[in-house]
Design a protein around this nucleic acid. Structure first.
Lengths: 242, 242
DNA sequence: GCAAAAGTGTTTCCCGTACACCCATGC
DNA sequence: GCATGGGTGTACGGGAAACACTTTTGC
């Protein structure tokens, strides 16, 4: 390990300091592929580092935790500061605390992951130092952030299969086709519309509205909404679906 | 919020400090009940607090993180210091960071949960300030530790149903009856021995040894072992089954 | 009418549960 | 032999996957 500056020893031997980071997922329409038309893709925002270490590398949004905000509040604030967005779902991912994960300081990062609405993410900030990347094709990141992204992706994909979080990529109401496209984008494979419909309708939290969507050149689909039947505990008490 | 000492403001407005805690599970033979004979029970060690806040209350074992040890190492060390035991399974549970979870200092606790071998736990330290309690009947604890225990219990019970961690309550080799008793103790219900056997044998990580156990007044059961077929990712890269 | 997606019905297969039954040991 | 748990066989039922089919819209 390199010891770059003069007062290193003070910092090195100090107790670990604390930070939060966020992995923020959204969905974009897939590149129009000839073979597999219109399968959506997961995207996430990264920030370019302007200070050492890892200057100019892309990294996850993150920062320190204020003395008077909870971890979740800090993640929420951080997410909003970098993307101007409010997540529809936010959950703690993991605390990363390997000794050598940052070259000089010892930092423990508590990482959150979030889902943001697709159409809102489309009009989100994208400046010099914030940019969105396809989740399956992120560049080499600062620190251990590539591992973190991989783990968040794994968690998202697993959780989508046994829970009902997927609708958080969409707005308040949505058609079953839209919801299915979300599942297809996250899982990366086609899903049978007929069976998908039955599974979803079995969910009991999914309630049909009395509205339909006209304008398509086919039978108008019904709009659905997710009722707030409090989900069974899959995360600790403090966390919830916002 | 009470401000107890002179230099409080410095501490209150300082960034959150970091600690780890551990929820350590083991299994004890159930109290011999007439109706339901011999269903095992989950037990966990607690430590009596000797300093404010919450003097004399029971609490989870825990402490600070050294500058040169990983979170997992810190949990491991802490566990060993309080129980003289080495866990057979150790996994991060959650980072608890509500602002008011400790009355004066702001502390973020990264909590690990562990499984220790039943017969080793039996001969573990149990002094004035360390004592084991039935997991379903813990007293009122310091801080938010009751919530933490509840969440760890929930996680243990859920994970036992979809993974193969349960054998970590036992030694290297074990009979299927012993393994079944572990499941019964954790889940709190009887399990059909015939179906249990088939499910386990399907696991493919479970390998039969060529030994059997004699001495029972019945057909001698075979001993099994868990092969190290690296489990599919259910925890981040850093974590593993020790 | 025709295309296209919404929505329904039906069959098949797999897997978990229930439970009857046989096997090997100690006494 | 008999009791006791180890271990096997088998039938039932619910749910997921595959896919044929009907419905409702725009053009």
């Amino acid at each position: 390990m390199v010891l770059p500056t003069a007062n290193v020893s003070e910092r090195l031997y100090a107790p670990p300091s604390l930070a939060i980071s966020t992995v923020i997922f959204s969905i974009r329409n897939g590149t129009v592929d000839q073979d597999e038309p219109g399968l959506g893709e997961l995207w996430l925002p990264l920030v370019r580092r302007t200070r050492p270490p890892y200057v100019d590398r892309w990294a996850l949004p993150g920062g320190p935790i204020a003395w008077d905000e909870s971890l979740e509040d800090a993640a929420h604030r951080n997410l909003h500061e970098t993307t101007q967005l409010r997540p529809r779902y936010l959950e703690q991912l993991y605390a990363f605390g390997a000794v050598e994960r940052s070259p000089d300081l010892r930092v423990v990062s508590i990482v959150y992951w979030a889902l943001v609405q697709a159409d809102e993410a489309a009009k989100a900030t994208e400046g010099d130092n914030v940019s969105w990347f396809a989740a399956d094709d992120v560049p080499r990141l600062a620190f251990d952030h590539n591992e973190i992204v991989e783990y968040a992706l794994w968690r998202l994909r697993t959780k989508v299969e046994y829970s009902t979080i997927a609708h958080n990529f969409l707005g308040e109401t949505f058609t079953l086709a839209q919801l299915r496209e979300v599942y297809e984008a996250v899982l990366g494979r086609r899903i049978d519309p007929a069976n998908f419909r039955r599974q979803m309708r079995a969910s009991k939290d999914l309630v049909a509205t009395d509205q339909t969507v006209t304008g398509g050149k086919h039978r108008p689909p019904r709009l659905y909404r997710f009722g707030e039947t409090e989900a069974p505990q899959t995360t600790p008490p403090s966390s919830s679906t916002l």
